[in-house]
Design a protein around this nucleic acid. Sequence first.
DNA 1: TATTGTTATACTCTATAACTATA
DNA 2: TATAGTTATAGAGTATAACAATA
Lengths: 166, 166
Amino acid sequence: MTRISRRRSPTDANGNPAPPEADTSLGMLPDLIGYHVRLAQIAIFADFDEALARWQLSPGLFALLVIIEANPGLRQSQLARAAHLDRSTLVPALDKLEARGLVERRAAPDDRRSNGLWLTDEARPLLAAARSAVDAHERAIAAELSAEERSRLLDLLDRLAPHRRR
Amino acid sequence: MTRISRRRSPTDANGNPAPPEADTSLGMLPDLIGYHVRLAQIAIFADFDEALARWQLSPGLFALLVIIEANPGLRQSQLARAAHLDRSTLVPALDKLEARGLVERRAAPDDRRSNGLWLTDEARPLLAAARSAVDAHERAIAAELSAEERSRLLDLLDRLAPHRRR
DNA sequence: TATTGTTATACTCTATAACTATA
DNA sequence: TATAGTTATAGAGTATAACAATA
């Protein structure tokens, strides 16, 4: 006996059509990749937020810290490009990180329009701890996947919407 | 000769470390599923928006129309549950659809607190056309995937964050 | 008491346009 | 002229809390 389908059928156990009351309605949505991606994203981000709550780091802020750590002295516009954000979007995010003493803007020596971005000494151990939490989060969300399935998933995701990836 | 890797290495063609100027910085992010899901989501939604621009339908509004079509007379709170939205979130969305003449709220005969939701005659052909556009969009984003890879992807996505799926 | 739809409100994430100070 | 950072502003999309009508 094999499991019939991921999707519940719109009929109940007696073969009667499900009443509108049933929550199977979304099963009526065509099996769109975007829809499954969105549901996965919601679940993953909720888990990330809970896992990183101790450090008050959203996926976005965590990413900024990781990029700055890997590229000390990075300019704001470079960071914006790397994080796929408008440079105006980055400003309040950096304000937040700077207010929390995790990032420093230092005037660039060669170009007085630019700021170099640096992790503070306070940020380094925090980021290390956050990384551990992210690792645990990653294990939790991929708990049902083998290592092979996991890398297969990453590959398939990367091949979506090829005409859109810059 | 096989393609070496999806990810660019942080060294340039001469083997020198990439300067911070390079946009490879995000390659420094651990290979997180959530990150790949987010990038896929951004690309997919952008494509959806462009494909459905003629009908001014976001993924969310399209989903609402599809669910209502499949469940004529559905109550607002049922729709909210089906679409994973708070019922207060649904109100302005339905206002928009009603103002555009696509959906009608009709007083429910049996419960005077409730509204039944119905597609208008105007909505039906529009939704049919939108469905075609969505089909084309789906083919475009999955252009690089075989039918088998596509259903493999849906399966893998559905198995993420098992402890979070209600 | 509980539920339905609604309102008021707020928060997150994101962008565009325009400003300033440099280059 | 063009670029870097900033500000003001706006628009999705989402939620919580409280209310009136009804069950």
